[in-house]
Design a binder for these strands. Structure first.
Length: 308
RNA sequence: GGUACCCUAGCUCAGUUGGUAGAGCAACGGACUGAAAAUCCGUAGGUCGUUGGUUCAAUUCCAACGGGUACCA
């Protein structure tokens, strides 16, 4: 895979825009496989709410990283990066083009650029810090961060408690400031990358999202959420489509309110994804219906027509 | 038909003892390094129901009209 003719083609875009369908058509055309880059389609229990490829679709094209984990498993972007990269080493032995398809911007960037080497989080420490947080509030945490890592304190969003938590955790775990690990260096990849993003008219996208939520409830999303209720505090269940139904099951909302909230939060999520992909100027934008334009774009870039 | 109350941002509602107005949600934009479908930040948007009166000045007080809600007949 050290040759320069290996291509990773990224297909990104907001949820419900049509990535899955188009990716399968493209993979069939180029006779290759798909690596999923959607942080929630990794989990096998999330069958309905994350709109993973259907069994028929999975049969058409070889897929990787779809429903490989349990919601009980701990997982993170760094593991994803490492596992995808070693899989790519294998796959590029027999293929020249591979698709990376999904909507999780951070996961895609981790594969394309890499992320810095840092310690994993320590559940015990986090539990302890959570207790401190409840007791002392966010100001106490800010002060602690300022003491442990003035550099990060200067640069971080001090209103974002997840960021503060993470930085403090790394400092306490390693005895070194978080900023020591944060090098922001782009890793070299022994393959070329072509980035494609999909988008469509906003109202049309919202319409598709709203309809898809209705279809999910018809398919049994509520039952699925009920069956996963006992895992509601696990990270993978902090997901649009599930968290709202957990609140419904706790009588915080009516069912109708919960479903409206799922639609609203999915629309919001789509916008957040667009913000992420817009920032990266390497993306070339297409409408999901422009399949032949996309095929030309890929072929023009890779300069070859056979892929075996 | 009578009485009372209401009409302010796309929605739900604050508010101005008279000096042309805000919150939450929605909309739109942005940030993003082991929680990322997470977690945060910002922007815009109103002839304050209509018409008239009082006043230096009315979204605010008064009247009529229109629309709504509740109660009484």
């Amino acid at each position: 895979m050290t040759n320069n003719n290996s291509w990773l083609v990224v297909l990104a875009g907001p949820t419900a825009v049509g990535k899955t369908k188009l990716a399968i058509e493209l993979a069939e055309y180029f006779k290759t496989c798909i690596i999923n880059a959607d942080s929630r389609q990794l989990y096998k229990e999330l069958q309905i709410g994350t709109a993973p490829p259907t069994p028929e679709e999975l049969n058409k094209v070889e897929h990787y990283f779809v429903q490989i984990l349990s919601v009980k498993d701990y997982y993170n972007v760094s593991q994803f990066e490492n596992e995808v990269i070693s899989l790519l080493y294998e796959l590029f032995k027999t293929r020249k083009l591979i698709f990376l398809v999904g909507g999780s911007g951070l996961y895609i960037d981790a594969v394309c650029n890499g992320i810095d080497d840092m310690p994993n989080y320590d559940p015990e420490l986090r539990k302890e810090l959570l207790i401190q947080y409840e007791k002392n509030g966010i100001d106490w945490f800010r002060a602690l961060l300022k003491k442990l890592d003035p550099n990060t304190y200067q640069n971080i969003d001090l209103k974002n408690k997840n960021r503060i938590f993470r930085a403090v955790e790394v400092c306490l775990q390693t005895g070194k400031p978080y900023s020591y690990f944060l090098k922001n260096t782009k890793k070299h990849r022994p393959f070329k990358i072509l980035k494609i993003a999909l988008n469509r008219n906003r109202l049309e996208l919202y319409d598709i999202i709203n309809n898809r939520v209705d279809k999910m409830t018809e398919k049994g999303l509520i039952e699925e959420a009920k069956s996963l209720y006992s895992f509601k505090n696990y990270t993978p269940l902090k997901t649009v489509g599930y968290k709202e139904l957990f609140d419904y099951l706790e009588n915080k909302y009516s069912l109708d309110e919960a479903i409206d909230l799922i639609k609203r939060n999915t629309r919001k999520y789509a916008r957040k994804q667009l913000t992420w992909f817009r920032r990266d100027k390497d993306y070339r934008w297409f409408h999901p219906n422009d399949k032949s334009l996309i095929i030309h774009y890929i072929e023009n870039n890779i300069n070859e027509r056979t892929f075996f």
